[in-house]
């Protein structure tokens, strides 16, 4: 149980029990004094369930930019401005024929979009033991980050070259 929940539960339970105890003490006292069980304290626990603040209508602004006067569209293709989307930049081309939009093409998908298309399993983590094992003695050549001519002398490649001199 989380600390906040535990503390809350402990406090609430203790409070409720204390209230009950208090009310009970009065009841016992009253019954002892008068011998009549008075109806208990008015422990108003009415949790008014009014609440429900109307969830302000999340009206989805239907982004449909359907122009009212669609008849005004001439045949041809129209290229829109570049729009930034969450998935990268997109440019749209509309093809109009007979005054109606007949095709919508995504023209330009920029780097972000290109990258989003490149996925998957091309490279994966591997263990060292999975790489083909070899000792410096049984390879023919050595690949490494560029060695300067000074560093060459102490390199594995130098040893190989010396062996084949």
């Amino acid at each position: 149980m989380r600390a906040r929940a535990a503390a809350g539960a402990a406090l609430a339970s203790a409070g409720i029990l204390a209230a009950g105890w208090q009310a009970g003490a009065q009841a016992i006292e009253a019954s002892q004094v008068t011998g009549v069980t008075t109806s208990g304290g008015t422990n108003g626990t009415a949790s008014s369930g009014s609440g429900s603040s109307s969830t302000s209508g999340s009206g989805t602004t239907g982004g449909g930019s359907r122009a009212a006067s669609s008849s005004a569209l001439k045949d041809g293709s129209y290229t829109g401005a570049i729009e930034s989307t969450r998935f990268g930049n997109v440019q749209v081309q509309l093809v109009v024929s007979g005054g109606k939009i007949t095709d919508v093409k995504a023209l330009q998908l920029t780097d972000a979009e290109r990258r989003s298309q490149m996925i998957s399993a091309t490279a994966a983590p591997i263990l060292r033991s999975e790489v083909l094992q070899a000792q410096s003695g049984n390879v023919d050549t050595v690949s490494g980050a560029t060695v300067t001519s000074d560093a060459y002398l102490s390199s594995l490649q130098a040893a190989l070259d010396a062996a084949h001199a």
Binding site: R128, V131, L132, Q133, N138, T141, V142, L156
Partner: peptide, 20 residues
């Protein structure tokens, strides 16, 4: 194949592995 060793960047005197 020609077997090329690949240097271990953590210790350049040893090989990480090889590639044919």
């Amino acid at each position: 194949s020609w077997l090329a060793g690949i240097v271990d960047p953590a210790d350049r005197r040893t090989l990480l592995g090889a590639y044919p």
